[in-house]
């Protein structure tokens, strides 16, 4: 294992922020895994920390295949993690909206550029990412539909779903989009939670990455078999939104099979506990996303039901 400082942001009031990478093996730049790009991506950091620990043992046992390199960057935003802010605090900017970056640009663009100059050298790129709304997903792989995507390869993670998503205008400055355009096969893994450690989801995500590294011939390590993945798109998801505002009391959770008309959650008056709305599923399927609340604004998407798969 080689620990390196990939990029340094000099600071005045504090210590410099160092972006650390952990490199295993020698030779072709095969796969790179990036954890937290936002200061609240605790689960993403945790999965990477465990992956570094795991790969250290694999390397000792000779399990990194000859001519292959795998690199892990646990976090690119340690300074924000230390003060509890999601974005790059000095500029209030999202690093994941600044790719491919600019070496002569703002500090945030320079961080993105410093990262991307390494990230783009790899054949496969894995980003552990989070959703802007607090909630739980069925663990899955996301691929941006750039015309260069390879969702079939994404099935090798062995997670239940590979979600191919059409990029919105604002997605065109994300890492996943820039990565694909630069020739890296890029995958985003949704590792369950964001702000806290979810051991079960972390283990599942870790196993998925190890599975991918195994099947791609980068490492050799025993692992549990994965799921036969289904490739899904936005058209396979039905949204259930709140017609009222209030406190959310869920009765169904991510991953549950639900039948049409089944109760999913109650929206309660936060003062007197009366039920303002019963959220029901309009279709039979699997709960792909569940918002955690506890406060729900009217019209908020609360559930996404995966139908027809």
């Amino acid at each position: 294992m080689k620990k390196e400082v990939l990029y340094t942001v000099p600071s005045y009031f504090r210590d410099d922020m160092k972006i650390l990478s952990y490199r295993f093996g020698k030779g072709e730049k095969s796969c790179i895994i990036l954890g937290a790009l936002r200061g609240d991506e605790v689960q993403q950091l945790y999965v990477c920390a465990r992956l570094v620990s795991f790969l250290r043992d694999v390397e000792k046992e000779g399990g990194i295949l000859p001519g292959r390199t795998v690199t892990v960057i646990p976090t690119a935003i340690g300074a924000s993690m230390n003060v509890g802010t999601r974005l790059w605090a000095p500029e209030n900017m999202d690093i994941n909206r600044c790719f491919p970056g600019d070496a002569a640009g703002s500090t945030t663009e320079r961080i993105a550029d410093g990262l991307f100059s390494t990230l783009k050298l790899y054949r496969y790129g894995i980003q552990l990412t989070s959703f802007y709304q607090p909630g739980s997903f069925v663990p899955h792989v996301r691929v941006m539909d750039t015309g260069r995507q390879n969702p079939e390869l994404g099935c090798e993670f062995g997670l239940p779903y590979v979600y191919v998503r059409k990029p919105r205008i604002t997605d065109k400055t994300t890492l996943n989009y820039a990565w694909q355009l630069s020739g890296t096969q890029a995958y985003s893994l949704y590792a369950g939670k964001t702000h806290e450690i979810d051991e079960t989801a972390a283990e599942q995500t870790l196993r998925a990455i190890i599975r991918f590294l195994n099947t791609r011939g980068i490492i050799r390590s025993e692992n549990s078999p994965g799921h036969t993945a289904s490739v899904i798109t936005e058209g396979d998801l039905t949204q259930v939104s709140a017609g009222a505002a209030g406190l959310l009391r869920r009765v169904k959770f991510a991953g549950a099979h639900v039948r049409r008309g089944e109760q999913l959650a109650f929206l309660l008056n936060p003062s007197d506990g009366s039920v303002k709305e019963v959220l029901k599923t309009p279709a039979t399927g699997v709960l792909f996303f569940v918002q955690e609340g506890p406060f729900i604004t009217q019209y908020s998407p609360v559930f996404q039901v995966l139908t027809g798969k």
Binding site: Y12, E91, A104, G105, T107, R110
Partner: peptide, 8 residues
């Protein structure tokens, strides 16, 4: 204000 390398 406080600045970093790259601050406009």
């Amino acid at each position: 204000s406080a600045v970093y390398p790259g601050t406009l």
